[in-house]
Amino acid sequence: MADLSVSAASPAGQSQTGKIALRWSLYTLLCLFALFYLLPLFVMITTSLKSLDEIRTGDLISLPREVTFDAWRTAWSGACTGIQCEGVRPYFWNSVLIAIPGVAISTLLGAMNGYVVAQWRFRGANIIFSLMLFGCFIPFQVVLLPMARVLGMMGIAGTIPGLIFVHVIYGLGFTTLFFRNYYVSIPADLTKAAKVDGAGFFRIFWSIFLPLSLPIIVVTVIWQFTQIWNDFLFGVSFSQAGTQPVTVALNNIVNSTTGVKEYNVDMAAAIIAALPTLLVYVVAGKYFVRGLTAGSVKG
């Protein structure tokens, strides 16, 4: 140990200036990469704040000469998606109505599944868990037709509950995996102690496991919200006029305009559609990393 620290310290002492130069070049490189990645966002924001004339005549990456929020207003409540011209607003609310129950239900069910698979071992528990894991790897496209049949038989095809159902089913594999991996690290003695104390299946879940689960709940909520909000394929396949989510509306705005392409409106609509997931990451991002590593560290 002592030898190691000595040998590590001596070359650093010899070239202090070299070390600083290395540090600076590293930061410069990182800044360049950051700029590169931020460029699309920059273009989106500046374009959305320009007038159509300015876009036509000006430079792609120049700042707007005259800031105008007209494009945002149009995108929110006036842009045409096909024959209707109501902007993304109604579709935005559709997405909210799909995402919030979808996230809540799939997270709760995942927590319960994980709790059962990790702490109430029963015959075949491993097989069931493996099958659920397998579900995570089935491509979306494969389930489209069977799912359409199922939704039709249940009488919820083309409705918002139908979309919630699809997202809950598809999310269960992942949410179960998250919670199961979190709960296996909790000692089985805890469940035993609670059983001796007289608590039953649900009591142990509510009083002991759920209060322990905040980090993994945050991870699951971020994951599920991003998945459901950003979903396009299920949205476009299983919705009809009036129940389409914002991603589908965005596509329609961009693709169904005739004549002059209103780039500023397209950009504003895209930003509006992306805003909620961005917000979730900013608010809960630090819990995300914390939660991902929480299982491995003993509290």
């Binding site: 000692p187 003695d189 035993k192 102690a193 059983k195 001796v196 007289g198 039953g200 009083s207 002991i208």
Partner: peptide, 19 residues
Amino acid sequence: SPKDRDIAMVFQSYALYPT
């Protein structure tokens, strides 16, 4: 079932409820 056996148990890991 354990809850109706009129027993109390102390575990090796103590198994205290962490929250």
